[in-house]
């Protein structure tokens, strides 16, 4: 049997490592190069600006985030292609956000279908500029390959971003969204059926609870944000 002291020391070392990680300064975004930025995003012409979204996102990143922005979270997720993704990279566009797990037998496919129905109500130019992010509860089974299979099964196009993360950030995101979840004995997750609309600054502006309901309200909210 291991001596308790050793176990305790290891535990404390791990805790200390967490502390160090937590105190590491957030990676700093380089300020936008004004020479490059200036011709691309003239302030008085928002229509033009939206077409140059990547450049505008860079510009937006220079402004401090609002206190209610979920984009304050310094978390790196992994998409179904295995690439690192930060939620803050969606700044500048309205976002639809939901939590799912790929082996879900009932609710998640319905939830995905609800979001699809909601997107069908959007004007095409808004839909094209409004990504959907699905974050998995299942930190163990939902590897990038499992999410890729989910994408194929559900026939999700490039507007849908499928993300996985570690247990702590998944829990934190669920807490911020008010999503409840619990894994049962078979490994299935009971969870809130909820999708959330974030505005261009990453603030929660609308939440839609329930399945197979009327999705016109979130569609209206997104259309007004994307205009």
């Amino acid at each position: 049997m291991k001596t308790p002291a050793v176990v305790l020391c290891l535990g404390l070392q791990a805790a200390a490592a967490t502390l160090i990680a937590a105190e590491a300064p957030a990676p700093c975004c380089p300020p936008p190069d004004p020479a490059k930025a200036a011709p691309c995003c003239p302030a008085p012409a928002p229509e033009v600006a939206r077409k140059d979204a990547p450049c505008c996102t860079e510009l937006a990143a220079a402004r401090p985030l609002s206190a209610k922005s979920l984009y304050q979270l310094d978390v790196t997720w992994t998409n179904d292609a295995g690439q690192a993704v930060s939620l803050a990279s969606f700044r500048g566009r309205p976002l639809t956000l939901a939590m799912i797990f790929a082996s879900c037998e009932y609710a998640c496919p319905v939830l995905v279908d609800d979001i699809r129905r909601m997107r069908a109500l959007l004007p095409e130019e808004v839909r094209a500029n409004t990504p959907v992010v699905l974050v998995s509860f299942d930190t163990v089974r939902d590897t990038p390959a499992a999410l890729r299979a989910f994408r194929e099964r559900m026939k999700l196009d490039g507007a849908w971003i499928l993300l996985r993360g570690e247990a702590a950030p998944v829990q934190e995101l669920a807490m911020l969204l008010g999503v409840k979840f619990k894994q049962d004995a078979r490994g299935q997750f009971a969870h809130s059926n909820l999708f959330t609309v974030l505005n261009t600054e990453g603030e929660i502006v609308h939440q839609h609870a329930g399945l197979m309901g009327d999705v016109s309200s979130p569609a209206k909210v997104i259309a007004s944000l994307g205009r």
């Binding site: 009932y106 409840k180 619990k182 009971a190 969870h191 809130s192 059926n193 309901g213």
Partner: peptide
């Protein structure tokens, strides 16, 4: 998971 909205927002 005992939510008020038993119709709506969770499966349990």
């Amino acid at each position: 998971m005992v939510t008020g909205e038993s119709r709506a927002d969770s499966g349990l």
